[in-house]
């Protein structure tokens, strides 16, 4: 496993990906630090971090797009399968390599508050709390991007889908605010989700009965809950969307709060997507 980790890490610096990732992130952070902390003489560093989360939209796909898709494309995944290493170890090694690349600019950025504190009072506690949140946010998005990369053979498709998903996450709270708060509206929204889910089940299993049962069961449960107590649905869909909004979780950190539930949230998100990647890679062996 360590060998694969080393190979992956080295690979990011043989081709330009690692340098582009690090350079881009440092450039954006530098610009915002200059604008906010230096020119506007605003003492809180967490403000910079809250402004630069948008950079993830671009750089996470760059980092993750090749991780699994390229192995599959060049058929080197067969080597990894035939090595005495489990798929979980392979995926973990890849994830940790990407995380390590991400930690390099984060490590450099972590010096900024110290440098700034030479010139004035910087709240180091909140700054580093926010930086931890920032790291967790990035780590979760990398897991999402890796999962997207495992679904396809093409790096371009991997990059575009990762961008799409991360973009949707970025806009999630805005989307949530568009949804009417009424119970009926939530019910309709959930019904659509159930239908989409049934469609996914059908496309995976090619079995119309299973998909039909899924849709029927979903509809039955929704209708049942609605008739028993329709007030549960009041604004529920918007709440669910808000709960899924990965970027929003970070904003609590930038207000100077250290939110343990958010830490747990991010860690579970990472575990979930790494697990999903393992399953997606395993599935290929079975198809």
């Amino acid at each position: 496993m360590f060998a694969i980790y080393k190979k992956e890490l080295k690979n990011y610096f043989i081709n330009m990906t690692g340098y582009i990732f690090i350079g881009f992130m440092l450039a954006i952070t530098g610009i915002f630090t200059t604008l906010i902390n230096l020119i506007s003489t605003y003492p809180s560093f967490e403000n910079v971090l809250s402004n630069i989360t948008i950079v993830f939209l671009l750089i996470v796909p760059i980092l993750t797009m090749r991780s699994v898709a390229e192995e599959r494309h060049s058929k080197t995944d067969q080597l990894l399968y035939s090595l005495p290493v489990s798929v979980t170890q392979v995926v973990l090694a890849k994830y940790l390599a990407m995380f390590t690349v991400f930690l390099i600019p984060v490590g450099i950025i972590s010096l900024y508050p110290l440098i700034l504190s030479i010139f004035g009072t910087v709240y180091l506690g909140t700054a580093y709390g926010a930086l931890l949140g920032f790291t967790l946010l990035g780590a979760s998005l990398i897991a999402v991007g890796m999962f997207m990369s495992s679904l396809t053979e093409s790096q371009v498709i991997a990059a575009v889908t990762s961008f799409g998903v991360i973009f949707a996450m970025y806009l999630m709270s805005a989307i949530a605010s568009l949804i009417p708060a009424g119970a009926m509206a939530s019910l309709v929204a959930f019904a659509i989700v159930v239908l989409i889910f049934a469609g996914v089940v059908y496309s995976l299993t090619k079995n119309s009965t299973v998909a039909g049962i899924t849709a029927a069961a979903g509809a039955f449960i929704l209708a049942g809950i609605y008739f028993i107590n329709s007030s549960i649905f009041d604004g529920l869909f918007a709440n669910v969307l808000n709960w899924l909004s990965v970027f929003d979780r970070f904003s609590t950190f930038t207000t100077g709060l250290f939110d343990l539930t958010s830490v747990v949230y991010y860690v579970s998100l990472i575990v979930l997507f790494v697990f999903a990647t393992v399953q997606s890679v395993e599935k290929r062996r079975w198809s």
Binding site: N11, S74, T76, S82
Partner: peptide, 11 residues
């Protein structure tokens, strides 16, 4: 194992 297409890292 050597698969049909050698699994080599070109770089």
């Amino acid at each position: 194992y050597l698969p049909e297409q050698p699994p080599l890292y070109m770089d």
